[in-house]
Amino acid sequence: MDKKNKKSMRMTTILLKTFSLVGLLIAFSCTPDETQVVTEFQDLVFYDEFDTDGLINPDIWGLSDGTGTDGWGNNELQYYTDRTENASVRKGILTIKAVEEDFSGAAYTSARLSTKGLKEQKYGRFEARIKLPTGQGIWPAFWLLGANNGDGTNGTEIWPNSGEIDIMEYRGQAPTIIHGSLHGPGYSAANPITKSYALENDRFDNDFHIFGIEWTASYINYYVDDVLYNQITREQVEEKGVWVFDQPFFIMINLAVGGDFVGAPNNETVFPQTMLVDYVKVYKK
Protein backbone atom coordinates (compact mmCIF):
# COMPACT_ATOMS: atom_id res chain seq x y z
CA MET A 1 0.00 0.00 0.00
CA ASP A 2 2.72 2.33 1.09
CA LYS A 3 4.96 1.61 -1.86
CA LYS A 4 2.07 1.98 -4.23
CA ASN A 5 1.33 5.44 -2.92
CA LYS A 6 4.89 6.52 -3.34
CA LYS A 7 4.94 5.25 -6.89
CA SER A 8 1.75 6.97 -7.89
CA MET A 9 2.98 10.18 -6.34
CA ARG A 10 6.24 10.12 -8.25
CA MET A 11 4.27 9.69 -11.41
CA THR A 12 2.01 12.60 -10.59
CA THR A 13 4.99 14.82 -9.95
CA ILE A 14 6.09 14.31 -13.52
CA LEU A 15 2.58 14.91 -14.71
CA LEU A 16 2.36 17.97 -12.54
CA LYS A 17 5.32 19.57 -14.31
CA THR A 18 3.75 19.05 -17.69
CA PHE A 19 0.08 19.54 -17.01
CA SER A 20 -0.14 21.58 -13.86
CA LEU A 21 -3.03 23.67 -15.10
CA VAL A 22 -5.05 20.65 -16.20
CA GLY A 23 -4.24 18.97 -12.92
CA LEU A 24 -5.51 21.86 -10.90
CA LEU A 25 -8.79 21.97 -12.83
CA ILE A 26 -9.39 18.27 -12.28
CA ALA A 27 -8.48 18.62 -8.63
CA PHE A 28 -11.23 21.16 -8.16
CA SER A 29 -13.75 18.74 -9.54
CA CYS A 30 -12.68 16.41 -6.72
CA THR A 31 -12.44 13.28 -8.81
CA PRO A 32 -10.00 10.65 -7.55
CA ASP A 33 -7.51 10.91 -10.34
CA GLU A 34 -3.77 10.49 -10.61
CA THR A 35 -3.42 13.91 -12.21
CA GLN A 36 -4.42 15.67 -9.00
CA VAL A 37 -1.92 17.99 -7.38
CA VAL A 38 0.14 15.88 -5.02
CA THR A 39 3.27 17.02 -3.28
CA GLU A 40 6.04 14.65 -2.52
CA PHE A 41 6.29 13.87 1.16
CA GLN A 42 8.68 10.97 1.26
CA ASP A 43 10.94 11.71 4.18
CA LEU A 44 9.62 9.66 7.08
CA VAL A 45 9.92 11.87 10.16
CA PHE A 46 8.47 9.52 12.73
CA TYR A 47 6.24 6.50 12.91
CA ASP A 48 4.76 4.06 15.36
CA GLU A 49 4.05 0.51 14.20
CA PHE A 50 3.13 -0.57 17.74
CA ASP A 51 5.63 -3.40 17.71
CA THR A 52 6.39 -3.53 21.44
CA ASP A 53 3.73 -5.54 23.29
CA GLY A 54 2.18 -3.78 26.28
CA LEU A 55 3.89 -0.45 25.74
CA ILE A 56 2.29 2.72 24.45
CA ASN A 57 5.47 4.62 23.59
CA PRO A 58 5.64 7.57 26.04
CA ASP A 59 8.05 9.40 23.74
CA ILE A 60 5.25 9.66 21.17
CA TRP A 61 1.92 9.43 22.98
CA GLY A 62 0.19 10.92 25.99
CA LEU A 63 -3.14 9.56 27.22
CA SER A 64 -6.07 11.76 28.24
CA ASP A 65 -7.76 11.33 31.61
CA GLY A 66 -11.32 12.47 32.36
CA THR A 67 -14.37 13.83 30.57
CA GLY A 68 -13.15 17.34 29.67
CA THR A 69 -15.67 20.17 29.84
CA ASP A 70 -19.16 19.21 28.60
CA GLY A 71 -17.88 15.88 27.30
CA TRP A 72 -14.91 17.41 25.44
CA GLY A 73 -17.19 20.16 24.14
CA ASN A 74 -19.41 17.69 22.26
CA ASN A 75 -21.49 16.14 25.06
CA GLU A 76 -19.58 12.88 24.64
CA LEU A 77 -20.48 10.18 27.15
CA GLN A 78 -17.17 8.40 27.74
CA TYR A 79 -14.53 8.82 30.41
CA TYR A 80 -11.02 8.65 28.93
CA THR A 81 -8.62 6.62 31.05
CA ASP A 82 -4.95 5.68 30.78
CA ARG A 83 -5.69 2.06 31.79
CA THR A 84 -4.72 -0.91 29.61
CA GLU A 85 -8.42 -1.87 29.64
CA ASN A 86 -8.96 1.07 27.27
CA ALA A 87 -5.69 1.32 25.35
CA SER A 88 -3.11 -1.39 24.83
CA VAL A 89 -0.52 -2.61 22.34
CA ARG A 90 -0.31 -6.20 21.27
CA LYS A 91 1.08 -8.02 18.24
CA GLY A 92 1.74 -4.87 16.28
CA ILE A 93 -1.67 -3.33 16.89
CA LEU A 94 -2.79 -0.46 19.09
CA THR A 95 -6.24 -1.30 20.44
CA ILE A 96 -8.46 1.47 21.73
CA LYS A 97 -11.44 -0.07 23.46
CA ALA A 98 -14.76 1.57 24.39
CA VAL A 99 -16.25 -0.28 27.36
CA GLU A 100 -19.73 0.04 28.85
CA GLU A 101 -19.12 0.43 32.61
CA ASP A 102 -19.86 2.90 35.40
CA PHE A 103 -16.70 4.94 35.91
CA SER A 104 -16.52 8.19 37.90
CA GLY A 105 -20.04 9.17 36.88
CA ALA A 106 -19.69 8.18 33.22
CA ALA A 107 -21.44 5.20 31.63
CA TYR A 108 -18.55 4.33 29.29
CA THR A 109 -14.78 4.35 29.31
CA SER A 110 -12.44 4.68 26.35
CA ALA A 111 -9.09 6.25 25.44
CA ARG A 112 -7.60 9.20 23.60
CA LEU A 113 -3.97 9.35 22.51
CA SER A 114 -2.24 12.61 21.71
CA THR A 115 1.27 13.62 20.55
CA LYS A 116 0.90 17.07 22.13
CA GLY A 117 4.27 18.36 23.31
CA LEU A 118 5.94 15.22 21.96
CA LYS A 119 5.53 15.15 18.19
CA GLU A 120 4.39 18.32 16.50
CA GLN A 121 4.93 19.32 12.88
CA LYS A 122 4.03 21.97 10.34
CA TYR A 123 2.95 20.57 6.93
CA GLY A 124 3.57 17.01 5.83
CA ARG A 125 1.84 13.75 5.16
CA PHE A 126 0.02 12.23 8.15
CA GLU A 127 -1.47 8.79 7.78
CA ALA A 128 -2.69 5.85 9.84
CA ARG A 129 -3.92 2.36 9.00
CA ILE A 130 -7.04 1.67 11.06
CA LYS A 131 -9.82 -0.88 11.39
CA LEU A 132 -12.85 1.02 12.66
CA PRO A 133 -15.46 -0.06 15.21
CA THR A 134 -19.21 -0.16 14.58
CA GLY A 135 -22.67 0.67 15.96
CA GLN A 136 -24.98 3.55 16.77
CA GLY A 137 -23.25 6.23 18.89
CA ILE A 138 -19.67 5.13 18.19
CA TRP A 139 -17.37 7.99 17.10
CA PRO A 140 -13.71 7.27 16.36
CA ALA A 141 -11.42 9.96 15.00
CA PHE A 142 -7.90 10.49 13.68
CA TRP A 143 -7.17 14.23 13.68
CA LEU A 144 -4.73 17.08 14.17
CA LEU A 145 -4.98 20.07 16.48
CA GLY A 146 -2.90 23.28 16.39
CA ALA A 147 -0.01 23.05 18.84
CA ASN A 148 -0.77 26.59 20.00
CA ASN A 149 -4.20 25.50 21.24
CA GLY A 150 -4.88 26.85 24.73
CA ASP A 151 -6.79 29.41 26.75
CA GLY A 152 -5.60 32.45 24.79
CA THR A 153 -2.87 33.48 27.23
CA ASN A 154 0.91 33.13 26.93
CA GLY A 155 0.79 33.11 23.15
CA THR A 156 -1.82 30.32 22.92
CA GLU A 157 -4.97 30.51 20.82
CA ILE A 158 -8.51 29.52 21.70
CA TRP A 159 -10.14 26.89 19.45
CA PRO A 160 -11.06 27.28 16.60
CA ASN A 161 -8.40 29.96 16.05
CA SER A 162 -5.76 27.31 16.71
CA GLY A 163 -7.13 25.21 13.84
CA GLU A 164 -8.20 21.57 13.50
CA ILE A 165 -7.64 19.09 10.69
CA ASP A 166 -9.92 16.04 10.91
CA ILE A 167 -8.26 13.38 8.79
CA MET A 168 -10.95 10.81 9.57
CA GLU A 169 -14.20 10.98 11.51
CA TYR A 170 -16.80 8.23 11.32
CA ARG A 171 -20.24 7.46 12.66
CA GLY A 172 -20.60 3.84 13.80
CA GLN A 173 -24.16 3.86 12.44
CA ALA A 174 -22.90 4.65 8.91
CA PRO A 175 -20.19 2.02 8.45
CA THR A 176 -19.33 2.81 4.82
CA ILE A 177 -18.71 6.57 5.19
CA ILE A 178 -15.90 8.69 6.66
CA HIS A 179 -15.58 12.45 6.83
CA GLY A 180 -12.54 14.73 6.33
CA SER A 181 -12.89 18.27 7.66
CA LEU A 182 -11.17 21.55 8.46
CA HIS A 183 -12.13 23.76 11.40
CA GLY A 184 -10.85 27.31 11.84
CA PRO A 185 -12.09 30.85 12.45
CA GLY A 186 -15.22 31.34 10.29
CA TYR A 187 -15.70 27.62 9.57
CA SER A 188 -15.99 25.57 12.73
CA ALA A 189 -18.20 23.34 14.89
CA ALA A 190 -21.37 22.54 12.88
CA ASN A 191 -20.08 24.54 9.88
CA PRO A 192 -16.66 23.14 8.93
CA ILE A 193 -15.20 22.76 5.46
CA THR A 194 -15.85 19.06 4.98
CA LYS A 195 -16.33 16.22 2.56
CA SER A 196 -17.52 12.66 3.02
CA TYR A 197 -16.14 9.58 1.32
CA ALA A 198 -18.11 6.35 0.93
CA LEU A 199 -16.52 2.98 0.21
CA GLU A 200 -17.99 1.09 -2.73
CA ASN A 201 -18.88 -2.54 -2.00
CA ASP A 202 -17.07 -2.54 1.33
CA ARG A 203 -17.26 -1.06 4.83
CA PHE A 204 -14.76 0.41 7.26
CA ASP A 205 -15.40 -2.05 10.11
CA ASN A 206 -14.64 -5.17 8.03
CA ASP A 207 -10.91 -4.52 7.53
CA PHE A 208 -8.06 -2.03 7.84
CA HIS A 209 -7.97 1.11 5.69
CA ILE A 210 -5.42 3.90 5.33
CA PHE A 211 -6.55 7.42 6.18
CA GLY A 212 -4.26 10.28 5.33
CA ILE A 213 -3.73 13.93 4.42
CA GLU A 214 -1.04 15.82 2.60
CA TRP A 215 -0.74 19.32 3.91
CA THR A 216 1.16 22.20 2.37
CA ALA A 217 1.07 25.97 2.66
CA SER A 218 -1.49 26.12 -0.13
CA TYR A 219 -3.82 23.12 0.26
CA ILE A 220 -4.71 19.99 2.17
CA ASN A 221 -5.37 16.76 0.24
CA TYR A 222 -7.48 13.99 1.80
CA TYR A 223 -7.20 10.35 0.87
CA VAL A 224 -8.50 6.91 1.83
CA ASP A 225 -6.28 4.02 0.77
CA ASP A 226 -5.08 5.02 -2.71
CA VAL A 227 -8.03 7.28 -3.46
CA LEU A 228 -7.53 11.02 -3.23
CA TYR A 229 -11.08 12.18 -2.59
CA ASN A 230 -10.78 15.85 -1.69
CA GLN A 231 -8.57 18.89 -1.87
CA ILE A 232 -9.20 21.99 0.24
CA THR A 233 -7.14 24.97 -0.97
CA ARG A 234 -6.00 28.01 0.92
CA GLU A 235 -8.24 30.10 -1.40
CA GLN A 236 -11.31 28.06 -0.49
CA VAL A 237 -10.54 28.46 3.20
CA GLU A 238 -9.99 32.20 2.88
CA GLU A 239 -13.39 32.61 1.26
CA LYS A 240 -14.88 31.52 4.58
CA GLY A 241 -12.36 32.73 7.14
CA VAL A 242 -8.69 32.64 8.05
CA TRP A 243 -6.14 29.97 7.00
CA VAL A 244 -4.56 28.98 10.32
CA PHE A 245 -2.48 26.07 9.05
CA ASP A 246 1.02 27.53 8.89
CA GLN A 247 2.13 26.36 12.34
CA PRO A 248 2.89 22.96 13.97
CA PHE A 249 0.00 20.60 14.77
CA PHE A 250 -0.12 17.46 16.93
CA ILE A 251 -1.94 14.15 16.36
CA MET A 252 -4.99 12.84 18.22
CA ILE A 253 -6.49 9.35 17.96
CA ASN A 254 -9.57 8.60 20.02
CA LEU A 255 -12.74 6.56 20.25
CA ALA A 256 -15.67 8.56 21.62
CA VAL A 257 -19.05 7.21 22.69
CA GLY A 258 -22.11 9.38 22.09
CA GLY A 259 -21.84 13.10 21.50
CA ASP A 260 -23.49 15.60 19.17
CA PHE A 261 -21.96 14.13 15.99
CA VAL A 262 -23.36 10.61 16.45
CA GLY A 263 -26.06 10.65 19.16
CA ALA A 264 -26.19 8.16 22.04
CA PRO A 265 -25.68 4.41 21.62
CA ASN A 266 -28.89 2.37 21.55
CA ASN A 267 -29.76 -1.13 22.77
CA GLU A 268 -28.35 -2.63 19.54
CA THR A 269 -24.90 -1.11 20.05
CA VAL A 270 -22.54 -3.90 21.01
CA PHE A 271 -19.88 -3.26 23.67
CA PRO A 272 -16.97 -3.35 23.92
CA GLN A 273 -16.08 -1.70 20.61
CA THR A 274 -12.49 -1.60 19.40
CA MET A 275 -10.58 0.72 17.12
CA LEU A 276 -7.47 -1.08 15.84
CA VAL A 277 -4.49 0.98 14.68
CA ASP A 278 -1.81 -0.83 12.68
CA TYR A 279 0.50 2.19 12.29
CA VAL A 280 0.79 5.96 12.34
CA LYS A 281 3.33 7.60 10.02
CA VAL A 282 4.34 11.20 9.48
CA TYR A 283 6.41 12.39 6.51
CA LYS A 284 7.89 15.71 5.45
CA LYS A 285 9.17 16.93 2.13
Binding site: T134, P175, T176, N201, D202, R203, D205, N206, V270
Partner: peptide, 10 residues
Protein backbone atom coordinates in the same frame (compact mmCIF):
# COMPACT_ATOMS: atom_id res chain seq x y z
CA UNK B 1 -26.25 -9.19 -5.34
CA UNK B 2 -22.73 -8.95 -3.96
CA UNK B 3 -23.14 -5.80 -1.90
CA UNK B 4 -19.90 -6.07 0.06
CA UNK B 5 -21.39 -3.67 2.60
CA UNK B 6 -22.81 -6.28 5.00
CA UNK B 7 -20.92 -6.73 8.24
CA UNK B 8 -21.01 -7.71 11.89
CA UNK B 9 -22.81 -11.09 11.69
CA UNK B 10 -24.73 -11.83 14.91
Amino acid sequence: EKLGTLGQPQ
